[in-house]
Each structure stands twice: as C-alpha cells, then as structure tokens.
Design a protein around this nucleic acid. Structure first.
Length: 810
DNA sequence: AGGCAAATACTG
DNA sequence: CAGTAT
DNA sequence: GCCT
C-alpha cells in the first residue's frame, strides 16, 4: 500500500492557469480501508483558508498535498518539490469562463416589486392571551432590570468598569456602606454636580465615545435607582455623555431604557410613544455595551456604528428606526448603475415579474409557489429524471473501482438516521419536505423510516396545520427582526431539538385545549396560550402586533440573497421600502454585486424547485463533469437551506408517483471528489467544469468563487438554469469539492437535516471529538478561558468510514 | 441563570 | 473586521 | 421561548 506512483497527472487534470502544472508523485492508498479497520493518522487538515495565512502555511506538507494518501503513509517527507505549484495557483483567474461571468448589472424596470407594505398593525389593547413581550418591541410586562444587558456588561469590557463604578458610588457617597435609596433623578443630579470626582485614578477602559451625546437613562423605575441603574449612570458619565436627570426633548439626544413601554413613558413624562420626537432614538442598554465593545475604533467610525445599530437595540418596535433617518441622507438617487444590461438579461427579466403576489406577500405566495411549480414546465428535452436513473452516468469506472465506498458509507448514514430517531424518541424525517437523493449505486431498500412517503402523509394529514401555520408566521416575523431575543424566540419555535412546531407536525390528533397543548413536551405556557387563542378565535393577535412595517420590509429585503438583518434594517432606515426602491437607489443605498444578482432574481431564488428539476439539471452536469474526468465521483446532495421552512399543506393530488411526492429543493448541492487510487485527484476539475457549464448556459451567474480553485477542497456558489428551456428559472447551485477521504463526512454533513447534524455534533463533542465537513477529529483542545479558541487543532483524525460499525459514533 | 450548532468561507 | 451564507 |  505504500507504493508510490510517480506518473504525471493525467493531461486532463493538468491545466493550471499558467498552462502546466508540475507533475508530481502521489502515493496510492488502498487496502486498509477495505478492511474497515480504524485508521489513525496525523492530521491531514489543511490550514484554515485564510488568504493571509495560506502562503506560509504548512511549510513542508504543501497543502497541495492534501492528497491524503501522501500524508497517510508518512512518506511525504521524501517527496521532492512538494511545495511548488498549488500555492501559486492562488493567483488564479477569478473569471473562469471566457465570457464575463459577472452579470451585467441589473437595473431593470419592474421586476419583483414590493408593492405595498400593509399598514402597520395596531397594537392590541390588552394583553390577554397575547404575550406582549417581544424584544425590540420589548414589552416586558414588568420592568425587570434587564438581566440581559447586565450579563453583557459583566462579560465585555466591563468587569473593570463595573468595579470602578462601584468605587465611584461609594466615593460619591463618602461612605462604604450601602448607599441609601435615591431616585434616579437624584442620583443623576448627584453625578452631575459631583461628577465622578475621586475615582479618576483608573482611566476608563472605553474611550468616552458618548461625548456630545445627551442621554436620558431609565431603568424603568422612577422612584428608586437600583444598583444597576446607578452603575449605568456612572458608566454613561464616564463614557463622556451629558447625563440628563430629567427628560427634556429639546436637549436629550438619546433615550436609553430597560423599562417597559409604560414605565419608560412615565419616566419621560409622556403619554404615548408617538409623543417622543422622531429624532430621538430609544434604545436599550445593550447599545451602550456595543459601543464599549468597540471602543477601539476611531470615534467617527464608532459613531457611525452606533447609529447603524440603533435599530438593533431599539427598545420599542414603534421606535426602531427613530433617530436614524439622517444617517443615510436620501442623497442623489437614480444613481443608475446604468451599466446597462445586455439582451440576455432583458429576456430573463421580463418573465419573473409575473408572480406579484409573492412579492407583496412573500409568505402567501409560498403556498402556491410550490403548488404551481409542478414539473410541467420541464420539457421532455431533459433526460427523464428519477424513474430509471438515466444511465448510470456515474460511470462503471467509478463504482467498480471504488468498491469500498459502497456499503460503509451508505450504511453509515442509514444507521445514523435510525439511531438518531431512536435516540430522540421520534422519527426524524428530514426537516422539510425533502428527501436525500438516493445514492444511485446502492439503493437501500430498508430506508422506510425516513422516506418522504411517511412524511408526506404526515404533512398532508396534519390535524393541526392551522396552528402550525400561525406559529410559523409568527416565527418568521421574529426571524426577520434584529436582536438576540427574537433570534432565540424564532429558534425556539422550530430549530431547537424539541420545538413546538416540530412537535405539532407529529402530533397525531387535533389539539383541543390549552392543557392538551401544554402536555406536549416542547410546548410551554406561552405557546400553549397562543394555541388556545388560535383554537378559540382562529387567529393570533400577536402576529398582527409583531407585523410592523419595519419587520415586513425587513422580511422582504432579507429575501435578497446577500442581505441579512443588518443590511435590511440599514436600508429600511435609509428609506427603502420596496425592491423597487432599491433599484432606484432610494436613500442612496448601494448594492453589492452579489446583492444585485439576488435582487434581479429575487423570485427565482426564493422559490423552491421541483425535485425533478434539480435532477434534470444534475443530469446535464454530470456527463459534462465526467467528460472532464471519467473517474470523478459526482453526487447531488440533499439540501435544506435557508428559505425552506414552509409548512404548507399540499394537495395530495400533486403527489405524482415518479416525482416522489411534492418534494422540492431549495438549491442544488453537488459534491465532487475523486478516488485517489490511481494517483490522481480532482484538482483542476472545478475550474474546467465551471467554464464548461457557463459555456453550456447552465451556469449563469457566480455568487462566490473559491479563493483557490485548484484546491482539493473548494466551494463554488452560483446560479444555474436549464438551458434551452424557455423561461427556465434561475436556481441556486453549489459545487463542493472535497478530498476523497472526506467524502463520507461531507456527504453526512451536507445531506443531514439540521437536527441530525446537531445530534451528530453533539455526540461527537461529548466524546471529545469534533465533527465538521472534513471529518471527525480528536484531540481538540480549547482555551478554557474562551471556548471559542482552539489551542490545538487536534492531532488525530479518524476517518469515520474506516471505523467498524461498533466504533462508529452513532 | 444560562444555553440553545459550530465551523468555515467569501465579499467588501 | 462585519455581514452573510452554508 | 423552551428546557434544565
């Protein structure tokens, strides 16, 4: 097994941009794996792909050699001239195809249009069943001195600051005992008059970035300044701001509150939120800590950052963008990137305007999106999908040569799935209505447990669908909002290990009462009350309450590939409300090139595609890839990505026999690797493939090109479409290349649903391993001070499919 | 009160 | 480095 | 927002 094959790479693989890649010897691995014996070897991991890092990384073992076998037999040291190439390929060309891969800018009249954002819903009167505690809209029923903020304080800059503050307080009072109760007003006055005299010894760790700000702070209690409040007031003063003891809208520039809406208004001496001048932002304490955490940057930058994050720390949803209006002056609009578009673009543009429903109401559109996307549009040109897997394109070559990859692999995740299901006490179907594409080479008969059949039925017949719909809707709103609280709130609905939505999907009977709902493991008091309300009224008022204009707009904007919460809110505060606003440069917003593409193909990208279309596209790609190198292992992976949590009931009639139900895919993930037993690798295939696919009209736009195309491990993201099909839509597509040995881990990693992955990692972690797309690693040592820091990358790698079943983790 | 997935890569 | 994506 |  230690044989070294010193033959040049096949010409096929030899095409560095510069023309030739030095040939180099490569050892072959074989044998060991056939015995399924655990193989332990030194790390083969490449160093992190840090551009800055790469050059000098791994002196001896040129990562080029990630060629596993090399390292595995420990003979790399003898291999001459290792370092050479690959490094330099870094300078590779970004554009793969002869023709420009970048699209010619967007700027089209009316494509998707966010027509009208529904009027802001009016807040509910009383709090009945509705739980009004939402974050930016933080209606904490009672004004608990935000422990959240407190926590942040403690953890960031802050330990110091805190201590300091304490001394300050005592000093100010001239005694060490507990200060006697004072009102916030009194305390602020005190600070003002006495200042921080005395404690100047220690300079503040944070720069006084609040200089020039006039801040009014309230912890929510007007009558008693808690320790927290006092501390914070001290900090505010230290940060250089002018602390106002009472609210004067002529003077105050920022309101910082941890109190409820009511308490805050009281402290301000106002009646309604609307009474607060629009130019005064009302934020939570976390906004201050954000600044403290960034005190290293120049005052100007920090100022901007603080402005940009006002919404992120807004205390009340109605005032999320207060004070931001001026940030991005609605400057010169119509800054048309009149780059102009070419004909091709125009033709595509015209056709994605149709479905405007989805635009004005993304959610709704969803349902019919799926319903309509029946495969009818897919002409017969395509190699007939699914049924009889179109000719085993995967080449006999591959399958015969790679006997070992058969069972171990397939069986592995088969087992993993089942094990997980048992583990969790429920059958885990892929988290959305997708199924992992079958591994063609070895269909497994016994995968009954988690096939989509089961799930289809469950979904179609779910007796609590209306509840799920409402909860999902609410979740989507939380998801679009900024801030941690909403994040976790949304997470709790469907992403956690045990969650209401997940549980409901599997609940066999119609829920009728609060108690019944409550009895479900993942359903807590809050959710149970919501369910009860839905049962009684058929509606959930909290939804209307959360669905404020900003959230709706944010939802729409975040639908653009490349736009997340921060950007969405930034644009919102710049005055953008619709996709057209973006196109028109309202507020002077600028889109990145990726965002331009995301905008141009907004509808396409957000739409799921029928599984058959994914297969059709893959079936076009595979032969092209194999023509570049017949020994490639190319495989489509199941995917479930971003916009996939749709819990839509579908007409069963759509369940076409050979399409495996109504299953659809959010994107196409293609894994490429190559057996190394003949001494060659897939290096170099990717760029050629990309070019070929561009030429074939399959790939249309690039979203992200790997830094190093000539890497054993690279990821490409882009858009593709069925060529020669009139008006075929753009679909998201990713190509992943991985070292041969990592294919198992990669397949697992990318095909598993979220729950599955989490469980795997959980187990791996518990056992002191780390699982990522590259493999299973042992010996990860983390900095005890900061779990995020890895001190030691781990010396060993166990390649999972070299393990005997009994040694596999799951 | 604290955790909830973690790791990695690309863009600007 | 922040933001986004997977 | 749920669980421990």
């Amino acid at each position: 097994m230690d044989q070294h094959i010193s033959e040049p790479l096949s010409p096929i693989l030899d095409f560095s941009p510069q023309g030739k890649r030095p040939s180099r010897p490569i050892t072959v691995e074989q044998g060991p794996q056939l015995q399924l014996v655990p193989v332990v070897h030194t790390a083969i991991d490449k160093p992190p792909k840090k551009k800055s890092f790469r050059p000098q990384a791994i002196p001896q073992i040129g990562q080029a050699f990630a060629s596993e076998s090399l390292i595995e037999d420990g003979s790399f040291s003898e291999i001459p001239g290792l370092k050479t190439d690959v490094q330099k390929t870094k300078t590779k060309t970004r554009a793969v195809s002869s023709e420009p891969m970048r699209p010619k800018t967007v700027k089209l009249g009316k494509a998707g249009t966010v027509s009208d954002v529904p009027e802001t819903a009016s807040p509910v009167g009383e709090s009945s069943v509705i739980d009004l505690s939402s974050s930016p809209s933080s209606r904490e029923g009672t004004p608990p001195p935000a422990k959240k903020a407190r926590k942040q304080i403690d953890s960031s800059t802050v330990d110091k600051g805190k201590q300091r503050v304490k001394t300050a307080v005592t000093a100010a009072k001239g005694k060490k005992e507990k200060p006697k109760p004072v009102t916030p007003f009194e305390f602020a006055e005190q600070l003002k008059t006495m200042g921080l005299a005395g404690k100047t010894q220690r300079r503040v760790s944070s720069a006084p970035f609040l200089e020039g700000y006039n801040v009014f702070y309230t912890g929510g209690d007007r009558t008693y300044a808690s320790e927290t409040t006092r501390n914070r007031m001290e900090i505010l003063v230290r940060l250089g701001c002018n602390l106002s003891s009472k609210f004067d809208q002529e003077v105050v520039t920022h309101i910082i509150t941890e109190g409820s809406a009511g308490a805050t208004l009281q402290a301000l001496g106002m009646k309604r939120m609307g009474d607060i001048p629009e130019h005064i932002p009302t934020v939570k304490w976390s906004w201050v800590t954000l600044g403290m955490g960034s005190s290293h940057m120049p005052k100007e930058d920090l100022d901007e950052k603080l402005r940009n994050h006002l919404f992120n720390h807004g205390a009340f949803s109605d005032r999320l963008t207060a004070g931001m209006k001026s940030v991005i002056p609605p400057s010169k609009k119509g800054k048309n990137k009149s780059k102009s578009m070419n004909e091709e673009d125009i033709s595509h543009i015209s056709d994605f305007t149709q479905d405007k429903t989805r635009i004005s109401n993304p959610r709704n559109a969803e349902s019919h999106t799926i319903v309509h996307s029946s495969p009818k549009e897919i002409p017969a040109i395509l190699p007939s999908p699914s049924i009889t897997p179109p000719r085993r394109l995967i080449s006999e070559a591959t399958s015969s040569r790679v006997l070992l990859d058969q069972d171990p692999l397939a069986e592995f995740y088969e087992r993993a799935k089942v094990s997980l299901a048992e583990d969790k006490g429920f059958l885990s179907a892929p988290s959305d209505n997708e199924e992992i594409f079958p591994v063609e080479e070895h269909p497994k008969p016994k995968k009954s447990r988690w096939t989509c059949d089961v799930k289809d039925k469950e979904i179609a017949t779910c007796p609590n669908q209306d509840i799920i719909d409402k909860l999902s809707e609410l979740m989507e709103l939380h998801k679009a909002k900024p801030g941690q609280e909403d994040h976790w709130r949304a997470f709790a609905y469907s992403k956690g290990v045990t969650t209401p939505i997940r549980a409901l999907k599997h609940h066999p009977t119609r829920i009728k009462t609060y108690e019944e709902a409550r009895s479900i493991r993942a359903v807590g008091d809050k959710t149970a009350r919501k369910i009860a309300e839905i049962l009684e009224t058929g509606d959930l008022r909290r939804i209307g309450y959360e669905r404020t204009e900003d959230v709706q707009v944010a939802q729409i904007l975040q639908g653009i590939y490349g736009v997340g919460r921060t950007t969405a809110y930034k644009w919102y505060s710049a005055g953008c409300r619709t996709l057209d606003d973006l196109r028109n440069g309202v507020g002077g917003v600028k889109l990145s090139s990726v965002q331009e593409i995301g905008l141009q193909f907004y509808d396409d990208i957000n739409e799921r595609m029928p599984r058959s279309e994914a297969e059709a596209i893959f079936n076009l790609i595979k032969p092209i890839a194999l023509s570049i190198d017949p020994n490639l292992f190319i495989q489509i992976m199941g995917s479930f990505r971003r916009h996939d949590n749709r819990y839509v009931s579908l007409p069963t009639s759509l369940t076409l026999p050979n399409i495996r139900g109504k299953s659809s895919c959010g994107d196409i993930d293609i894994l490429i690797t190559r057996p190394v037993d003949d001494g060659k690798t897939h290096i170099g295939v990717l760029p050629r493939l990309l070019e070929a696919l561009h030429s074939a009209g399959i790939l249309t736009e690039d979203l992200a090109i790997p830094d190093d195309l000539y890497d054993l491990e690279a990821t490409y993201r882009g858009l593709c479409r069925l060529p020669d099909v009139l008006n075929s839509k753009r679909r998201r597509i990713d190509f992943l290349t991985v070292p041969w040995k990592a294919r198992g881990a990669a397949l697992l990693y990318y095909t598993g649903d979220d729950i599955f992955n989490r469980a795997m990692r959980y187990k791996a972690g518990a056992m002191g391993y780390s699982l990522n797309q590259r493999g299973l690693h042992a010996g990860i040592v983390r900095d005890p001070q900061d779990r995020r820091v890895k001190i030691n990358e781990g010396e060993l790698e166990l390649c999972i499919f070299f393990l005997r079943p009994s040694e596999q983790l799951l």
